[in-house]
């Protein structure tokens, strides 16, 4: 829990109603290509059939970055 990811550039800001996945433009530092992925966040113990909450992260090769 509380995983810390590197953050490049300003964080997303809401513009109005609705949302969209992050673009991940210049969110992975110098690493390319940088693409949005769903990442499960492990909240600690959970029952076997429970799903994990998911968040968006920007992925470049095997590294994840904050959108």
């Amino acid at each position: 829990s509380g995983a810390v990811f590197e953050r490049f550039g300003r964080s997303r800001r809401a513009l109005g109603l609705g949302s969209s996945p992050p673009t991940c433009r210049s969110k992975c530092g110098m690493c390319l290509p940088c693409k949005p992925v769903h990442v499960p966040i492990h909240p600690g113990l959970s029952t076997p059939l429970e799903y994990y909450p998911e968040a968006w992260r920007c992925q470049c090769r095997k590294k994840l970055f904050m959108p």
């Binding site: 109603l17 609705g18 969209s20 992050p22 909450p53 998911e54 968006w56």
Partner: peptide, 26 residues
């Protein structure tokens, strides 16, 4: 990305505006 409201006593309809929340994974 995750909106979990299950297991409460929420009433009324599902707001149409949720259909605009394209960042939703769950």
């Amino acid at each position: 990305a995750t909106l979990s409201l299950q297991g409460n006593r929420l009433t009324g309809q599902i707001p149409e505006v949720i259909g605009l929340m394209q960042a939703l994974a769950v």
